[in-house]
Each structure stands twice: as C-alpha cells, then as structure tokens.
Write a protein that binds this DNA or RNA. Structure first.
Length: 778
RNA sequence: AGUCCAGUAGCUCAGUGGUUAGAGCAUCUGGUUUACACCCAGAGGGUCGGGGGUUCAAAUCCCUCCUGGAUUACCA
C-alpha cells in the first residue's frame, strides 16, 4: 500500500506555487476577472468534511478559470462566529476551572485571541495541505479593523435611513447562552407534556346568581402569574357574552394581573383547547402581538436566567421547570383545574446548547427588514441558484421576513458602535435627539447637553451575521472604494486598492444549505442595499454529508470522518476526487469512513494508473521523439528562471502544442489517418468539450467521472494497448493525449498532475499556467 | 399542516425524453508477470418505490398513493 505522492513532494509543490505567486489575483491585469468568495469557516476548531468539500470545489473552479485565461480571485477568510466561538471556548475554559466571570473581560479577551491564533494555524495547515489556490495576501478575518469599519458604515447607514431601532421587545432568549437569539438559530424538539384546563372565574356573572367561569387550556401554567387578559375568537357562541367583562387571575395577587379583561381576537383558534386563550404578553410571541394591539400591560413571571420573579411570591428564584409543578399544586389547592390531558408538542430549543428557549421581553437592537427584502425579491432572478429550487426557498423567506434582532449579550464580536453620555443619557435611550454618538472609538467631542466627555459604550455586540452579511463587500474594501447609497460622501479614503469595480459582483459563491437564510439571504439583501447590485452571480448549494443512517455528521454522534485522516491515508488528490464524487448539487450524500475509504482507494488507484501511463509513454519512449527536441527544460527538474508573475506571459505560450500537431514541419510523424488515432483524438475532443461544459455548469461530479472513464478505459485500456503494435508511429499522439489529460485533470488532482507534467518533454513552468485544452481540428 | 428533495444493482450513488439503464466497492470466471496485481478481459446481479396517464418512445414529463429526509409555520 503506497500513495502516489509523498507528503514532502506535495509540500514542495505547494510551496513553489505560492512562492511564484500563481494564486495571486491581478486587479490591474487586462484579463477578464473571475472571482470566487470562500465561505469563511467558523472559528471553532478543526476543519471538518464540509469545509474540505467546499474548498475542494472552489479550488477546482479557480484552477479551471485560471487555465482558461481569467484573472482569478479566490479570496479566503475566517469568521469569528460569536455565539459558537464563545460556546466552544468557554467549554475549554471550564475544563481549567475558569469562566468568563472569573477571568473578567480583559483577560478573557486576551485568551480568546490566543485561542483564535491556534485555530487559525490549523485552518492554514489544512488549506495548504489540500492545495487550495487562494490569494492569501487578501485574507480577511471578520474582526479585522477593515471589517469593523465596514460594519460601522453599515450601522450608520441603517441609522440614517431610520431602519434601526432599539427597544424592549419580545425576543427568543436562551437562558444558558444568556443572550437573545434569532428564530433561525433555534430548533424544535418533540416533548410529551400536559395540557392543563384551568378555570378563571368571571368577576360579574350574568344575571344569574351562581358564579360562572371560563376555562382555558395551557401547557405553561407557571406563566399564569403574568397573564394580563383572556382572549376569545370573535363572536364565539359560548363566550360572546363575557366579552368586556373581567375574570379573576386564579394565582396572582398583584394588582395589574388580578383582573383580566376578556377580549376578542381572531388570532385565537376557536377549535383548539377550549377556544379561549390566556394572554401572557411577556412570555409568548403571539400573546405579545395580541397584547400590543389591545394595549395590555406586560408582566414577567420568569427572568433572563430562567428563574421565577417576585411576581410569584412563594416561587421566586425557582427554576421555571420546577415552578411548573408547584404552580399546578397551587391551582389544585384552589380547585380550579378542570382536567389534565397528555399533550405532545414541539418546544423550541437553542440550536447551540439545546436549552429551552424562553420568549421574553428584552432591550435589543433591530433592523427593519421589509424594504431590504422587497428589493432583494425584485433582483432575485439575477442570481443563478444551483440547484434552481433554492430561488423559491429564499424568495418565500423574504416574503415572510420579520425584523432582524442584531444585538447579542456576548463579548466576542463587534461591539455595537454606540456611545451614550453617562450624565445626560443614563437610561441609554436612543434617538436623533438623545445624547448619543455612533462611533467605533470613544468620541472626543463633548456631549452637547452637559459639555462633558463621559461617554460609555453600548455593552452588547452585534450578531455575527451582521458582519458576515457584508462579506462580499467588506472583502473588497467597501465602503472605502465604493460610494455609499444616496451619493453620500465617503467616511474616509484609506488607500484600499480598488478591487470592487473589478471583482464585484462575485462570479461564484457556495455554501451548505443550513445557512441559506442566516447568511446567503442576508448577503443578497445587504449587497443590493449598499451596492445596488447582487453580490454573486452563481450561488451553489452543496449537500450536507450524512452518515449511512442519514444523520448529520457531528462530533457528539461520533459519526464524522476527519478529512485529515483520509488525506494522511490516501493522499490529497484521491480525497479531492472523492469529495467531487459526492458534490452533486443539492443532494445529501450518505457516507462513512468505510465508503469514503473505498472511493479514495479507487481514485488512488486511478492516480497510479496515470503514473503508469506516464511511465509507458515518456520513460519507455522507444523513439527519440522529434518533440523532445523542443523541450524547454530537461525533464524532472523544476525550472529556475521563472517569470515573476504569470501576468507577463504572452498568449503564445500556449499555442505550440496544438500548432505542433497541425504543422507538419514541426512534427513530421504526426499524422492522424489511422482509425485508432482518429478515434482517440475524437474521444479526447469529446471529453474536452464535455468536461469544460460540466465545469461551466458546476457539475464537478460529472467532469471527474468522465475524465476517469476517458483516461483509464478509453486511453489506457484501449488505445495504449492497441498502440503497442505501432508504438513509434503513435508516440506523438500518446504524448498529445497524455498532456491534455493531465491538464484537464489538474483542477481536480493538482499535485499529481503537476508532478507528472513537470517531467513531460515540453511543458510550461507549471501546469497551473497551462492553457485549458481546445478540441483539435483535423 | 404547508413547501421542497429523494426512493435506480448487495452497498454508496450517477444518469432526468431517444441505442441493450451506468460507475465504484462487493461477488464469480479467465488472463497477463518488462506501463500498471493499486492490472486486463469477461460474467452474474435491476418489474429504475407502487399504480395510472401523456408520447412513436418514459428511470426521465403529468396525476395519485406509499416510504424516508430536509425545511417553514402553528402548537393555549
């Protein structure tokens, strides 16, 4: 068992590519641009198979476009991933018996940045190991100054356009993470609970003397303390007569929750439960909406730590789950529980820590999204979604969009760039007439009311996606190289090179479907809003790798496959080929270590085949081929007098191979007259055409399959076998087909093709500079 | 509940109007030892989830049902 290339050779090849600057984009070049945006992996640990797949796909396309003669920009970066990073990092600290609180802000931050550096190193190692041909000189981290400036600009524009507001609203709160989260950051789990039917006594019964009551069904009796109304469906036959009256809260002794008005609202479903609904605006989204429309007060029975408040007297400080049982006991004592039913429903939990999410009121920042979504909807057709059905999925989300809650009570991220005057704005109120300033640094200008410099910054940070949503812009130097909307003057000019004009919109972006709303939909909205153009022309969704049972690969399930293990075992090129074979757009491929090993093995064998083809044609060349004389450099050695940069190369560099064969004076032995020769050249032509087409359409799984079939079964098994009887005569054709095969295969198996290409009698300085093959007319 | 995706060889998957439905792995038979045993030639293995329809022609398009999965919404 031996791999085709040893680690050392691979490293050397990669180093040379980098040193020669083959991966650099050249904004000044006259070549047509082709830009690919690397999704920044989250700063949370080792790269996983999903990353490996994304990067392998991006790299193949980048290499292909470069060989086609484009000025390619493949721009890398890493995302700080606030909430995920804190989750991972705090767990590590916990192992040392440390925590955020124990370390304090400054020390914690220092340690966090150290951890960031460690993770960064492991990313870089993997990238170079995989042969990723990115322009490292342009690499960005989402907490870089440059991005912070862009985020400031984003914030300011939203503020000036009156799209930004701050206030106490109901949000999804994760008591464990201690922050508000977005609904897209939640998931649902089925839970078996009870549905309690509770009687609320009507204050003034109808004419009759006996007391009447209204029964409501609830799964969360512990929130009864914070009820502020009872709602029924309009014109409900049974309850119509109670509307306008009041009911006693069975638990509360607090004045504003003591008597509950009975109201009508069509958002109540008449067929569920009893058709009457208790309204708890402080702990339920729908209730909050209803409460707002009916001007109901908002009360809190549960606080941000998930514990009962003083609204509950005896239960204060108790965890909500525990309090439920206690509440039921209280209700039983009062004899107001009519019946209890089993009830299964989905409960929202935090996607990160699986804690039950508590809707509650919190002071947060929001962006109004309607206008942005509407604009995005208008332009959605300008983006080529792969697969196509994602257009519809994204469009549906835009149609039902709600405001974006952008503040998070965390430390790792962009601090909200708002400063309040400590003296005049103690409540940290927000508004154009309030004493506040938007700025990254502490303002130097005094407060206009008290004339003092006592500014304090907003404590919260911004949602990660507030910055990653700018990724297509910030990576190219926005806002310093592009005008903000409404012809507004630029904040500053900081000498950024103007990549924007050349590379925006990006030609290609890809991602996993999981973050289509969080990231992709937002990049589209922000790109259109700030730049008036879609951020990318082709949006590719690859599938999520799953295990054989169809479950997501994850650390906790232990069903994941480490890309580095595979690479160590089989070499990079076979692993890349394996990933392409799984890269059919929009499909979720199922795999295990074993199935991946099988594929890797077959592609490793393919590499060996290629080496043997090379050996047969070149090393065992029976002729002193006339082509040999044209050699630019002796086989097997790396040319040392390279051009500084590929830019300076003339286009003629590529023409000699085909011309050689067309021109009898250069190759007297090259005659395509034998049927076998015709057949193989025709097959190669077909392969060139079809591989090119499939790459243009991002069908990498088909392109690799065709090359595999052509090289192994058509070229090696058939043509080479037949050629043995007329070996000398076929030598030029063998060399021609081999050269073109290597070039076609290079985007997918960069290392082995480079290694073999270097040893061909005539070649470029590197296969990365070789022109993409064209069909040979004869 | 809505929407979307999938169901093809023992397994993992390509193929999405047009020869006899393919690949890798697995199974079986034979061959080759100076390009390659990490090989070559060949074989077996499929009512393309079920049913109905459109068409000269359907795995492919339409309808319907079944199964699995994603996703969205509600859930008092």
């Amino acid at each position: 068992m031996q791999n085709n290339l040893d680690k050392f050779t691979q490293e050397k090849i990669y180093q040379t590519w980098e040193e020669k600057g083959y991966f650099k984009a050249h904004p000044g070049s006259s070549k047509k641009p082709y830009s690919l945006l690397m999704p920044p992996p989250n700063l949370t640990g080792e790269p996983h198979m999903g990353h490996a797949m994304q990067h392998a796909i991006l790299d193949a396309l980048a290499r292909f476009k470069r060989m086609q003669g484009f000025d390619v920009l493949l721009l890398p970066g890493v995302d700080h991933a606030s909430i995920q990073f804190e989750g991972v990092f705090n767990k590590i600290l916990a192992k040392e018996g440390l925590s955020k609180q124990k370390l304090g802000y400054d020390t914690w931050m220092k340690r966090a940045w150290q951890f960031k550096d460690e993770v960064y190193k492991s990313f870089h190692k993997t990238w170079s190991l995989m042969g990723i041909s990115a322009d490292w000189s342009k690499e960005i981290f989402t907490l870089d100054k440059k991005v912070a400036e862009a985020v400031l600009e984003e914030f300011k524009i939203f503020w000036e356009q009156d799209l930004l507001y701050k206030g106490a609203y109901i949000v999804q709160w994760c008591p464990k993470c201690g922050t508000a989260i977005e609904d897209v950051e939640m998931e649902y789990v089925e839970k078996k609970e009870k549905l309690y039917y509770v009687k609320y006594q009507i204050k003034e019964s109808a004419e009759k003397e006996q007391l009447e009551d209204i029964t409501i069904a609830t799964a969360r009796p512990e929130t009864i303390f914070a009820d502020t109304a009872i709602a029924v469906y309009p014109n409900h036959p049974k309850y119509k007569k109670y509307v306008g009256k009041k009911a006693w809260n069975p638990l509360s002794s607090k004045e504003n929750a003591l008597l509950l008005p009975i109201i009508e609202d069509k958002r109540v479903q008449k067929d569920f439960g009893t058709g009457a609904l208790k309204i708890t605006p402080g702990h339920d989204l729908l209730d909050y909406e209803i409460g707002k429309d009916h001007n109901l007060p908002i009360l809190h029975a549960i606080d941000k730590n998930g514990r009962m408040t003083n609204l509950t007297d005896t239960l204060e400080g108790m965890r909500a789950e525990e309090a439920r049982n206690k509440t039921v006991e209280l209700l039983q004592e009062k004899g107001v529980i009519e019946k209890v039913e089993d009830y299964t429903h989905s409960v929202p939990v935090c996607e990160r820590c699986k804690t039950i999410v508590e809707p509650l009121i919190s002071e947060e920042w929001f962006v109004k999204m309607k206008p942005l979504a509407q604009k995005a909807l208008k332009h959605l057709d300008e983006i080529n979604f792969i697969p196509k059905n994602y257009r519809k999925i994204i469009a549906n989300w835009y149609k039902e969009i709600h405001d974006w809650s952008i503040s998070r009570s965390l430390w790792w991220g962009h601090r909200i760039p708002v400063w309040y005057c400590e003296k005049c704005n103690t409540n940290h109120e927000v508004g154009k007439d309030k004493d506040m300033i938007i700025s990254l640094e502490k303002p130097t200008t005094p407060c206009k009311t008290c004339k003092q410099n006592s500014w304090v910054q907003e404590e919260q940070i911004l949602d990660t996606w507030f910055s990653s949503g700018l990724w297509p812009l910030a990576t190219l130097g926005w806002p310093f190289v592009a005008k903000a909307p409404q012809g507004k003057p630029l904040t500053s000019q900081k000498g950024f090179e103007d990549n924007m004009g050349k590379y925006y919109p990006w030609n290609f972006e890809l991602t996993a479907p999981e973050i289509k709303y969080l990231w992709i939909a937002r990049m589209i909205m922000l790109g259109l809003w700030f730049k008036d153009q879609i951020p990318f022309k082709n949006m590719f969704f690859h599938g999520t790798l799953r295990d054989l049972q169809g479950r997501k690969m994850s650390k906790s399930l232990g069903n994941g496959v480490d890309p580095l293990d595979l690479i160590n075992q089989w070499g990079v090129d076979p692993v890349r080929m394996t990933l392409y074979s799984y890269a059919a757009p929009g499909r979720d491929p199922k795999a295990s270590k074993q199935t991946m090993d099988e594929r890797c093995k077959s592609f490793r064998n393919f590499g060996t085949k290629l080496k043997n083809i090379y050996r047969f044609i070149i090393d065992l060349n029976p002729t002193n081929s006339s082509l040999q004389k044209l050699s630019k450099s002796p086989p097997g050695s790396w040319p040392d007098n390279d051009l500084a940069c590929p830019e300076e190369q003339s286009d003629e560099r590529n023409s000699f191979k085909v011309d050689t064969f067309k021109n009898p004076s250069l190759s007297e032995s090259f005659q395509i007259s034998h049927p076998d020769d015709k057949k193989i050249i025709e097959d190669l032509n077909k392969t060139i055409k079809s591989v090119t087409k499939n790459l243009e359409e991002f069908k990498l799984h088909l392109a690799t399959e065709e090359l595999y079939e052509f090289i192994w079964h058509k070229f090696a098994d058939v043509y080479i076998e037949k050629s043995k009887t007329r070996r000398v005569e076929t030598q030029p054709i063998l060399e021609y087909v081999l050269t073109n095969s290597l070039i076609l295969l290079h985007p997918f198996m960069p290392f082995l093709t480079e290694e073999l290409y270097q040893k061909l009698p005539r070649c470029e300085k590197s296969i990365t500079l070789a022109p993409w093959p064209k069909e040979l007319k004869f």
